[in-house]
Design a binder for these strands. Structure first.
Length: 558
DNA sequence: GCCGTTTTCGGCCCGACTGTTTTCAGTCG
C-alpha cells in the first residue's frame, strides 16, 4: 500500500521534473516509481532503503520523510511551482508534459476540465506548436478517456486478439504474424494490443488494418507502424517488419519496456547495438531473424515471454512449466451440481486432451445456489465414478470442492471427506471478514487432514472484486507444514494465485496445482491461462503437482 | 538522481509517427 502511494508520488515528481527539462533526474524518479510498484516487500519493512534498485541517498531520504511526516516537501514545492494536474492532462492521448506546460503558460489550463473547455472554445489551435488537428485530437482523446475503462482483463482481450489475427492471417501479403506486448507476456490485464507482422507489402496490410470494421479511430498510420482504437474499447498497434528482422522486432515489441532496456544495455556492454531491426556490431547486422538468435547474440538463452519483466534474475532463468507437462485437471464441475455437462462428457474431453487422470470436484451443500451436494449425494456419486472407472481409458478421481465456513470448518463430514480421492476446499462466503479471522479460517481448513487443495486462494475476480484480506505469508507457512497444495485457478477472470504469490509459494517450497474450475467441458481448454500464469510466477514442472504421474500425484496429496 | 566487468565522473535504450514546421520537437511504446 505504502509502496503504491510512493510510486505514484515519484512518478508525479518525474513528470514535474520533465517539465523543467531535468530529464535524467526525471528518469531516476520514474525508475524508482516502477521498482516500487512491483516490489513485493513494503518499504516500511525494509531496513536499508538504498538496497532498493534505483534508490540512492536522496530518494531514500524522501521515502523516510514520507514515512515519518506523510509528505515530501520537494514534491509539495514542485506542485506549488507548477500547479497543473499533470497526470490528468497527460492521460489524454497525444498530450505530454511539454505541451501541458505550454497550455498552462498560455491559457492557464490546470486540469482536464480546463483543457476540454479551451479546446471546445477553439482557443488551442493557433498556439505555438498547436494546430487544428491537435485541438481536434485533444477533444477526441478526452471523449475516449471518458468512455474507456483502462486496462482490460486477459479473458476479455483474448477473443479480440484472436479475431484480428485471424483476419490479418487471411491476407496473402502477411507472411508471419504474432501477438506481442503484454498480451504475449500474458499479463492478467492488458492496456493495449500489439501485433507484429512480416510482409513485403506493408502498405496493403496497413490499409486493411486501419480499414477493419471494428476500427473506430485511427491514431496513426505509417508504413511500419499503425495504431487504432477498436470498438471493444482498446487500442491496437500493428508493426510490420521485413522477415530478416522478425526475431528482433518480436523481442522488442514483446517488452516489457524494462526488459528491453536491460537487454539493450547488455548489448551495449558487449559493444553491440540492439533495436527492433537486429543486433548490430558497428553497422553490421549479426542477428535478428529469430528471437533465439537475438538473445544468443547478446549472450543469453531465449527467455519465455511471461518472464520478461523488470524483476527477472537473468543469472537463473527457470525452466518454466509447459502445457504439455499437464497430466490432468482436478477442478471440474459436472451436472451433478452447477456444471452443465455429465461426468462422462468431462472424461471424454479429458481423454481428448491426452490426460492421464481427471478429477470431479463438485460444489458441496453449503453452496445451495450451485446445487451443492450433501454427503448422501457425494456417496452416490462415488458409486457412479467407480462404475465409470471400470470402462474408462483414464483414471477418474472422486473429489469435491467443499466450502470453508466462516469458522474454518468444512461443510462436509470428515468421515465422507476421508473416503474421497482428494478434497479441494475454498472460501465462497463471508468474503469481507477481517484479515485475522480470514487467515485463521483458511489455516484451520489447511490443518484438516482431509483437505488437500485450497481453491482460488485469494478470492479475487479481476475487474470486479478485490482479493479478500488475508495474510498470505502465514498461509504459506502452514501450507508447507501441512503439505496443503495451493491452486492456480486458470479462469482468466481469477488467475488466482497471482504471479507474485506464485513466486512466494515457490520460495516457500509450497506445491501448487493448475486447475481450470471448468463448469462445462469446453472450459477444460482454459488450462493455458493457468499455465501462463504459473510461468509468469516462474513455476517449474516440479512445483506443479498435476504434471506428476497418477501415482506420484496421489503421494503428494494427504 | 543513480550507478559501476573500461567509470566515484560521465553517462543514462532506441526508433516511428504526427503535426507542426521547412528540419524538428513532442509523444509514444
Amino acid at each position: 500500500m505504502m509502496n503504491q502511494e510512493l510510486s505514484q508520488i515519484f512518478n508525479s515528481m518525474a513528470n514535474y521534473l520533465e517539465i523543467e527539462n531535468s530529464s535524467f533526474r526525471s528518469k531516476a524518479y520514474r525508475k524508482v516509481a516502477e521498482v516500487l510498484e512491483t516490489l513485493d516487500k513494503s518499504v516500511e519493512e525494509i531496513e536499508d532503503l538504498e538496497s532498493i534498485p534505483g534508490v540512492g541517498k536522496n530518494i531514500a531520504e524522501k521515502i523516510e520523510e514520507y514515512l515519518k511526516t506523510g509528505i515530501i516537501k520537494d514534491y509539495e514545492n514542485l506542485k506549488k511551482k507548477t500547479p497543473i494536474k499533470l497526470e490528468e492532462i497527460i492521460a489524454v492521448e497525444g498530450m505530454g508534459v511539454k505541451r501541458a506546460k505550454i497550455l498552462y503558460k498560455e491559457l492557464k489550463i490546470k486540469n482536464l476540465k480546463d483543457l476540454e473547455k479551451a479546446a471546445f472554445k477553439n482557443k488551442i489551435a493557433g498556439l505555438d506548436g498547436f494546430g487544428e488537428k491537435s485541438q481536434k485530437n485533444i477533444l477526441e482523446g478526452i471523449e475516449f478517456l471518458k468512455r474507456s475503462s483502462g486496462r482490460l482483463t486477459l479473458g476479455k482481450i483474448t477473443p479480440v486478439v484472436e479475431e484480428i489475427i485471424k483476419k490479418l492471417s487471411r491476407l496473402k501479403e502477411v507472411e508471419k504474424i504474432s501477438p506481442a506486448g503484454s498480451f504475449r507476456r500474458k499479463k492478467e490485464t492488458v492496456g493495449d494490443i500489439d501485433i507484429l507482422v512480416v510482409s513485403k507489402k506493408p502498405k496493403e496490410v496497413m490499409a486493411f488494418f486501419v480499414g477493419m470494421k471494428n476500427v473506430v479511430k485511427i491514431w496513426g498510420q505509417g508504413e511500419t507502424k499503425s495504431s487504432v482504437r477498436v470498438k471493444e474499447g482498446i487500442d491496437v498497434d500493428l508493426r510490420i517488419v521485413p522477415s530478416e528482422s522478425y526475431g528482433s522486432a518480436l523481442q522488442y515489441f514483446t517488452g516489457s519496456k524494462e526488459h528491453n532496456i536491460i537487454t539493450r544495455k547488455i548489448a551495449i556492454s558487449k559493444g553491440l547495438k540492439l533495436n527492433e531491426y537486429g543486433v548490430f556490431r558497428d553497422s553490421k547486422k549479426i542477428a535478428g531473424e529469430t528471437e533465439e538468435d537475438v538473445y544468443k547474440a547478446i549472450g543469453l538463452d531465449w527467455i519465455p515471454p511471461e518472464l520478461r519483466e523488470s524483476d527477472l534474475d537473468l543469472s537463473k532463468i527457470p525452466k518454466v512449466v509447459e502445457i504439455k507437462d499437464i497430466k490432468g485437471d482436478l477442478h471440474c464441475h459436472s451436472n451433478w451440481n452447477g456444471g452443465s455437462d455429465s461426468i462422462e462428457d468431462i472424461v471424454k474431453k479429458a481423454v481428448k486432451l491426452g490426460y492421464e487422470y481427471i478429477g470431479i470436484s463438485d460444489h458441496t451443500k453449503f453452496l445451495a445456489i450451485e446445487n451443492g451436494l450433501d454427503e448422501k449425494q457425494l456417496l452416490k456419486q462415488k458409486k457412479e465414478i467407480e462404475k465409470l472407472n471400470k470402462k474408462s481409458l483414464i483414471k477418474i478421481l472422486w473429489g469435491c470442492e467443499a466450502n470453508i465456513l466462516t469458522d474454518g470448518s468444512i461443510d462436509i463430514l470428515d468421515e465422507v471427506l476421508a473416503q474421497m480421492d482428494y478434497v479441494i476446499a475454498g472460501v465462497h462466503s463471508a468474503l469481507k471478514i477481517d484479515k485475522e479471522r480470514m487467515t485463521a479460517r483458511i489455516i484451520k481448513a489447511m490443518r484438516n487432514p482431509n483437505v488437500d487443495i485450497i481453491s482460488h486462494p485469494s478470492g479475487r475476480i479481476l475487474g470486479h472484486r478485490d482479493e479478500y484480506q488475508f495474510d498470505f505469508d502465514k498461509i504459506l507457512k502452514v501450507a508447507k507444514e501441512t503439505g496443503t497444495v495451493l491452486e492456480i485457478n486458470s479462469s482468466p477472470y481469477r488467475l488466482d494465485l497471482k504471479d507474485s504469490n506464485i513466486k512466494k509459494a515457490i520460495k516457500a517450497g509450497v506445491k501448487m496445482i493448475i486447475n481450470t474450475d471448468a463448469h462445462q467441458t469446453s472450459q477444460l481448454d482454459l488450462m493455458h491461462f493457468g499455465i501462463s500464469q504459473a510461468r509468469r510466477g516462474g513455476a517449474e514442472k516440479s512445483d506443479i503437482i498435476n504434471t506428476y504421474s497418477l501415482s506420484k500425484l496421489l503421494k503428494n496429496l494427504k
